[in-house]
């Protein structure tokens, strides 16, 4: 199905060569494994597969996506952190594994910065508040007012405890003083079902997973947590426009184990950003509801460091904790 035989042949030849000759062959001499730390089918998986295709064509070696789901995407990240830094094993680093998990899990097996070489940011997708069409408030101000009137707060659903969508709800409560009662679900799908069925009036979701329902009118968009309005949803106001100073994007990029050779980092970053610049990729990513954001390796590492620092107090406040 995939050119596995070519890989086998290549692998056998390379293994037979002495180490010195191997060092002389230009990277990448073998196919690259890209570990996606989520189950197949999600936004991250899809975007990673799209990038893997383009990247493989540019590098002249296939980039093979390998799903390694589990433990809030930390299992796959931990595996790559321990891999050899030869540029042949990469991981899709993301907000869960590299920004939230360090504060959420007490004994994480890796350090989000020290154990990785961060190569390139792929995509940022904003969070949105969506509500059942029957939900009375029209804007966030009315939501806050309504939530204060209710004795035990307003129910707001999310895709799970400790997810970035959950943390946005926490932040929303902190910033506006709204009284919210967080209702966690096992994934965005079941939560969306209950919003459509009006079991819960409102939910915090990521734009890619909510966009179909928004376009179909099954739910009404309340606010998008990006800095500017999203081009795909020009009518959807941002949090800031409604007087709530919140920007919350989910993001993911590509990283490798600590100590990748600088040549490899540079080449990878160049090729990835070239794939991102292709119109086909731009269009697909826009359909997914995300924004392409090319960064240099150093800028991506800095970005992650900022995210780790930013989420730590919010995770504390959320009360979500995983031992």
């Amino acid at each position: 199905m995939l050119p596995r035989r070519a890989w086998l042949a290549g692998g056998a030849v390379i293994a037979a060569l002495p180490a010195i000759t191997r060092a002389e062959t230009p990277w990448p001499a073998q196919p690259i494994r890209l570990v996606v730390p989520f189950a197949p089918g999600g936004t991250t998986d899809l975007a990673a597969r799209l990038v893997a295709q383009g990247l493989g064509a540019r590098l002249g070696q296939p980039v093979i996506v390998e799903n390694k789901p589990g433990a809030g995407s930390t299992l796959g990240a931990a595996q790559v952190a321990q891999a050899a830094p030869d540029g042949l094993t990469l991981v899709v680093s993301n907000i869960a594994s590299h920004a939230i998990a360090p504060s959420l899990y007490r004994d994480l097996r890796y350090h989000p910065l020290r154990d990785f070489t961060h190569v390139a940011l792929l995509i940022e997708t904003p969070s949105v508040f969506v509500a059942n069409p029957q939900f009375a408030p029209r804007g966030l101000g009315e939501v806050v007012r309504l939530s204060r009137e209710q004795p035990r707060g307003l129910d707001v659903a999310s895709s799970g405890s400790g997810s970035s969508n959950h943390l946005l709800i926490v932040q929303f409560g902190q910033v506006t003083g709204a009284r919210v009662n967080h209702v966690p679900y096992r994934g965005a799908g079941p939560a969306m079902t209950d919003v459509i069925a009006d079991v819960v009036p409102m939910m915090s979701d990521s734009l890619p997973s909510a966009s179909g329902h928004l376009r179909g009118g099954a739910v009404r968009g309340m606010a998008v947590a990006s800095a500017a309005r999203h081009p795909g949803f020009p009518a959807l106001p941002t949090f800031r426009e409604q007087g709530v100073d919140l920007v919350s994007n989910s993001w993911f990029g590509i990283s490798g184990p600590a100590g990748l050779p600088p040549a490899v980092i540079g080449r990878l970053n160049r090729e990835i950003n070239a794939v991102l610049a292709e119109p086909a990729t731009q269009r697909r990513f826009a359909e997914l509801g995300g924004l392409v954001s090319p960064l240099s390796p150093a800028a991506y590492a800095e970005f992650i460091a900022g995210e780790v620092a930013r989420w730590a107090p919010i995770v504390q406040a959320s009360g979500a904790k995983v031992e």
Partner: peptide
């Protein structure tokens, strides 16, 4: 279920957003 989630993924790849208007 998980299989259906993959189907959604396949649709999204095709540029079709599954939703009530499908």
């Amino acid at each position: 279920n998980a299989v259906m989630a993959l189907m959604v993924g396949a649709l999204i790849i095709q540029g079709i957003q599954p939703g009530p208007r499908m």
